[in-house]
Design a protein around this nucleic acid. Structure first.
Lengths: 192, 192
DNA sequence: ATCTGTAAATTGAACGTTCATTCGGTTGCA
DNA sequence: TGCAACCGAATGAACGTTCAATTTACAGAT
């Protein structure tokens, strides 16, 4: 299967995300994906051998997007604490501005599809290795307390995921004040 | 619809949970629920007008269970900090020991069913009001910092949910040491 | 430029399966 | 006797997938 994304495949991905956010996995038949993407059903099956494979490829596509957004161009010259805040902020920002991807990833993680994804290295839709590596670096340089890194990652990512959901469901307004409060809670909890 | 749970309805609920955890919403037909519960399909439709209604009632059932487990008999004579730790611990313990309920609630929250649940008061499957009330009490008595209570709830519940997932997916061993680390992170982050 | 042959892309009607739901009938109990 | 609980084969709609046919893309030959 071809994996450099042509316009057509990207188009199918985008409409699939929108439909799944609206109707869930089961609620979005291939026929609807085809219609919304302005292609025939046969075309989708030309690129993806099955619906399951489409979902799996879509998952991989989403994961690349979120990881690139969070970790690409992470200014190495900033202090660790500043980077710590930026990663959390980008994480929330991505989820809040890409609710269809966020919704898809959440559904994916809590479905049997999750077992089919070969690489199980993930927390909250984001490639876990990047987060773990980042936190370990903080421990080695004595910026963070030395505790189990997966426990720390739970607090870090878990807070971000739930905060984002609260914003999306309108329980929290997304502004700098609230974000800074969240970052401060976590930083106070994990700093050396 | 009758809502005092007979043995039969409880049996249907239990098997539905197990099946949904294994196969997801779409992967569990009514016929399979009937077979595993040792009743006829017609019997299920005698108690529930539709599959959707069954899911909705099941959601309500699960929510009552988790709330009762966490907040019933919460010793009022303990210090606030001790209660803070116990609520978090019970939250994690429930999820880890009831993975089928946890899995169902996670799927439910990230599906279109969620929009059908009338009362949207929830964080991480647990009735939000209880958590919010508990945290507000901590602020009023100067045990907790006075920041937006929903932000604090994000950190509190989010950490617990993600921690539980990490335990379930075997990234963290569930023992007192790890749990205490998690509690300490959050407590350090929010204490006055 | 024009033609030609081949492979890739695209189409959508048709197929077979699965599933939620129905309903006419049976059992058990008050 | 009546009513609620219970049964499961039958129904019909929805869905994933197939495939034979058609169009497009394009390289090489003229």
């Amino acid at each position: 299967m071809n994996v450099q994304f042509t316009d057509k495949i990207e188009c199918i991905f985008k409409h699939t995300l929108a439909l799944i956010k609206e109707n869930g996995f089961h609620g979005t038949p291939m026929s609807m994906i085809a219609k919304n993407s302005d292609v025939a059903i046969g075309t989708i099956y030309h690129y993806f051998p099955s619906k399951e494979n489409l979902i799996l490829e879509l998952f991989s596509y989403c994961r690349k997007k979120i990881n690139a957004f969070i970790f690409d161009d992470l200014a190495e010259d900033l202090s660790y604490q500043e980077q710590f805040a930026i990663v959390l902020e980008r994480f929330c920002e991505f989820q809040i501005n890409n609710t269809d991807i966020f919704s898809f990833l959440e559904q994916f993680h809590n479905s049997p599809f999750n077992d089919l994804a070969h690489d199980r290295q993930k927390v909250g839709g984001c490639d876990e290795n990047n987060v773990i590596t980042f936190l370990l670096k903080g421990m080695e340089t004595n910026k963070l307390r030395k505790i189990d890194v997966h426990v720390m990652a739970s607090a870090y990512i878990g807070a971000a995921v739930t905060f984002s959901k609260s914003v999306i469901y309108k329980k929290i307004k997304y502004d700098k004040k609230h974000l800074d409060e969240l970052i401060e809670i976590i930083w106070n909890g994990v700093k050396q």
